[in-house]
Design a protein around this nucleic acid. Structure first.
Lengths: 340, 340
DNA sequence: CTGAAAGCGCTTACAG
DNA sequence: CTGAAAGCGCTTACAG
């Protein structure tokens, strides 16, 4: 096991040319079925795996997809979202022997530089674009490079690149209608980073549905960190007529919100209902456990990878909407006990 | 920008052979300084980047390190540890144009299969081995493959592979002595997965120091999930003489512990002090904020990558101990108000 | 100091 | 159905 086996070794042992072995191994026409079986058996026996560099160099694919995460060190790793997404991607990629190249950068400039370098180096066959913005400089770059890409987000604002998303608008409607049915009349929203498409879609839906139902609505923007989530909560609860329900744009800010409520002596859910957006194990471990909008992130990742693989196979890939989110009700939401 | 630039293009433009261009680009002797500068300028102008496959195939490195995470979907992504570690690794790898290949698998069998495949495919130049166990089947496999590897953990039990670790034993001594100084006399430990080296090292240190000081000690094993952390806490607090302090092996279990205390009406820190092991933003967002053992995980990752790069450069790489952890005291630890 | 050539391990037209 | 050969884009001894 100290030397790597090549197709030349197999060819020699089988008494064939390297070309014939290659055809056999790749299921190409040009060899008899008997020969193919013999070669496949030998390759397995000898522990052959294709040299990824040689395969890539001879025109085939590099066998890797790229994922760049542009985030500040502070927000890195606190949301379970990304590991789940990655895990879902890989379960689809494993079957086609595709690896995942991960790069963490500080901003979009470096992210774009990474795409250009990967393209020039032929490092990856395609990429996943995270955190789509309404005006996203990265989209035209990927279009220009003709680097196959799947956008994590939508609908809209992803140019000619195919997008995969989850229906945020519908979920927001469900959330607000539920809270309204519980007789909440003042609802606030602690939103994520402005300019991100899903933030804007949710804000727009929030505004529309609250206006339609006749609910007093407030939105506060944050950078997704628990620190800003806590500050936003303090500000909202310090108002003359504070909201009786707050909807947070992620799980960690909602957890921070519960802590602020404790700190200020505000009863959850008696005086304040709290709703988290991505459901996660975090929502279950705080007290009270948090009601949340649950999305199947692993399936999201799987769909993204499947579509990117299809794109490379030359198939027509269109946009795709995942299964809609579900509302998971736990102890943090209830009919308010304090009158308006 | 639609066609990739190769050294042949540069050679033609410069009126040189491909070999000369290669020497110039790689800082090898064999070209005059003037020629080298001219070639470097041209390469930059023309947007040249080496084709990673060609480079790898011609005997050089693949330019990638591999990281396999063997975890159940349930525990995936809840600890900020890994993203921080990865981020630290990449900051060192970026300078040497090395990419990170990430693979998520379900168990060690698949992890080992991944190492064998990566080796045969020449996919990676080296790997990082996570979650070292006392009896670790993966170590002899990497030794057999002669795949350069850095072990995340130690000291000990990593065979001939170099390890990088943080002093868990010393940290445990500091933690217990601190709690003892606060007059805690019954301390429990909610430990991670048995068989993991750092779990065993901490347990051993916990037993030794509590015995030396004369403290009543209990250890409960878990799988690191908040669910088991919560259950362990309930069991400990239901005892006839419950502990007045609990040390948890990660942050999410400590947060779960706080929730259980709330749920059972146990005052933190009055009746129960809670200490988390890895400090993270989670510890800051709960109420009360958690005292914790803080380790510089990003630096940990950076050291790991630096050492693996050095190993590939043929340097003598020995084991390395990171800067010791620090005790960060917040609101969850105090002198117990209830007598023993 | 420079050029021509072989080789890395594959794939793929092109002849037989 | 099969073999011999060129080529992918680099690196690196080997001659000049």
């Amino acid at each position: 096991m100290t030397k790597r086996v090549t197709i030349a070794d197999i060819a020699e042992r089988a008494g064939l040319s390297k070309g014939a072995v290659s055809y056999a191994l790749n299921g190409q026409p040009g060899v008899s079925e008997a020969t193919r079986q013999r070669v496949l058996r030998m390759a397995l026996e000898m522990g052959w795996h294709p040299n990824s560099a040689a395969k890539a160099l001879s025109g085939a694919r590099s066998g890797a997809f790229g994922l760049v995460m542009a985030r500040s060190p502070a927000t890195l790793g606190i949301e379970p979202f990304f590991m789940k997404l990655i895990s879902g991607m890989e379960s689809a990629m494993a079957q086609s022997q595709t690896a995942l190249l991960l790069q963490v950068v500080s901003d979009h400039d470096r992210e774009i530089a990474t795409y250009r370098r990967w393209w020039a180096e032929r490092r990856v066959d395609g990429v996943f674009l995270l955190d789509l913005r309404c005006e996203d400089r990265r989209v035209p770059v990927l279009e220009e490079l003709k680097l196959p890409a799947m956008v994590v987000g939508g609908p809209g604002h992803h140019g000619s690149l195919p997008g995969v998303w989850i229906d945020d608008v519908g979920a927001m409607v469900v959330v607000i209608e539920y809270l309204a049915a519980l007789r909440h009349r003042r609802i606030a929203r602690v939103a994520g980073v402005p300019g991100m498409l899903h933030t804007e879609l949710r804000t727009q839906a929030f505004n529309e549905v609250t206006q339609r139902i006749g609910i007093e609505a407030t939105t506060v923007s944050t950078d997704y960190t628990p620190d800003e989530g806590a500050q936003a909560t303090r500000r909202l609860l310090s108002a003359a007529t504070p909201p009786t329900a707050i909807v947070y744009d992620n799980d960690v800010m909602a957890v921070a919100g519960v802590s602020v409520a404790h700190e200020m002596g505000v009863d959850v859910p008696g005086e304040l209902s709290i709703m988290a957006w991505d459901d996660s194990v975090l929502c279950e471990i705080v007290h009270p456990a948090l009601s949340a909008v649950r999305r199947d992130i692993t399936a999201y990742g799987t769909h993204l990878a499947e579509h990117l693989l299809a794109l490379l196979d030359g198939q027509q890939v269109s946009d795709f909407e995942n299964a809609p989110p579900r509302l998971v009700v736990r102890g943090s939401t209830a009919r308010p006990t304090v009158g308006p």
